[in-house]
Amino acid sequence: MGTIKIKNIRVYAYHGCLIEEGKIGSDYRVDLAVKANLSKSAKTDNLSDTVDYVLLNKIVKEEMAIRSQLLEEVAKRILDRILFEISLVKKAEVAVSKLNPPIGGNVAMVTIEMSKSRK
């Protein structure tokens, strides 16, 4: 078993409960980790034997482009799609952060973290 991590995927998106958030958008950061058996790809040196992090990045960007009120809903969609599309992944963990959230204070970011395992 091994882990593939993608850190600090930067995305501009339109999530949030406020009407203004849907109009002006905000900066987001997504961190992702997937667990998979990487022993075959370590031997074959073949991309088809591993989890393609280009595909992981694509999934994150596409799901972040779909407006949601809650970051939890976005994270769930990312996890569901990874496990649906990439059979090699046994577990996925995602952290979705809204940078400089409009919460009436000097806050760098707010983050939700979720994980999901294959049954």
Results as ranks from 00 to 15, higher is better:
Arg67Leu: 00
Thr44His: 09
Glu62Ser: 11
Leu38Gln: 14
Asp45Asn: 13
Val51Ala: 13
Tyr53Ser: 01
Leu56Ile: 00
Val74Cys: 05
Arg67Thr: 01
Ser39Asn: 14
Ala36Ile: 08
Val60Asn: 04
Met64Thr: 06
Arg67Met: 01
Glu62Ala: 10
Leu71Gln: 04
Ser68Phe: 09
Val60Met: 05
Asn57Asp: 11
Ile66Asn: 15
Glu72Gln: 09
Lys43Asn: 03
Leu55Pro: 01
Thr44Asp: 11
Tyr53Val: 02
Ser41Glu: 12
Lys61Ile: 01
Asn37Phe: 08
Lys58Arg: 13
Asp49Gln: 07
Ser68Trp: 04
Val60Gly: 02
Gln69His: 11
Thr44Ser: 15
Glu63Trp: 02
Ala42His: 08
Asp49Met: 07
Arg77Ala: 11
Met64Leu: 09
Ser68Val: 07
Ala65Pro: 04
Asn57Ile: 03
Ala65Val: 05
Glu62Phe: 03
Ser39Cys: 10
Val51Thr: 06
Arg77Cys: 04
Ala65Gln: 13
Asn57Val: 05
Lys76Cys: 03
Lys76Gly: 02
Val60Tyr: 08
Asn37Trp: 06
Lys58Cys: 04
Arg67Pro: 00
Ser39Val: 14
Lys76Val: 07
Asp49Ile: 03
Val51Leu: 15
Asp52Cys: 13
Leu38Ile: 15
Ala42Thr: 07
Gln69Ser: 07
Asn37Glu: 15
Val74Gln: 03
Glu72Val: 03
Asp45Trp: 07
Ala75Arg: 03
Lys58Tyr: 09
Ser39Gly: 05
Asn46Arg: 14
Asp49Arg: 05
Leu56Lys: 00
Gln69Met: 10
Tyr53Glu: 01
Leu38Arg: 12
Val54Met: 01
Ile59Gly: 02
Val60Cys: 06
Gln69Val: 07
Glu63Tyr: 04
Ser39Trp: 14
Ala42Tyr: 08
Ser68Asn: 15
Tyr53Leu: 02
Val54Gly: 03
Asn46Met: 13
Lys43Gln: 09
Asp52His: 11
Leu47Thr: 00
Val51Trp: 05
Lys40Val: 10
Ser48Tyr: 07
Val60Ala: 06
Arg77Phe: 12
Ser48Gly: 02
Thr50Asp: 13
Leu55Met: 11
Leu55Ala: 09
Ala36Val: 13
Glu72Trp: 10
Glu62Tyr: 07
Thr50Tyr: 10
Ala42Val: 04
Lys40Thr: 11
Ile59Gln: 03
Met64His: 12
Ile66Cys: 11
Val51Asn: 04
Glu73Met: 10
Glu72Phe: 08
Val54Trp: 02
Thr50Cys: 13
Ile66Val: 15
Thr50Gln: 14
Ser48Asp: 12
Ser41Asn: 12
Ile59Val: 12
Val51Met: 14
Lys61Asn: 06
Asp49Trp: 03
Thr50Lys: 13
Val74Ile: 12
Glu63Cys: 02
Lys43Met: 05
Ser48Trp: 03
Asp49Tyr: 04
Thr50Phe: 10
Met64Glu: 09
Lys76Gln: 12
Ile59Phe: 08
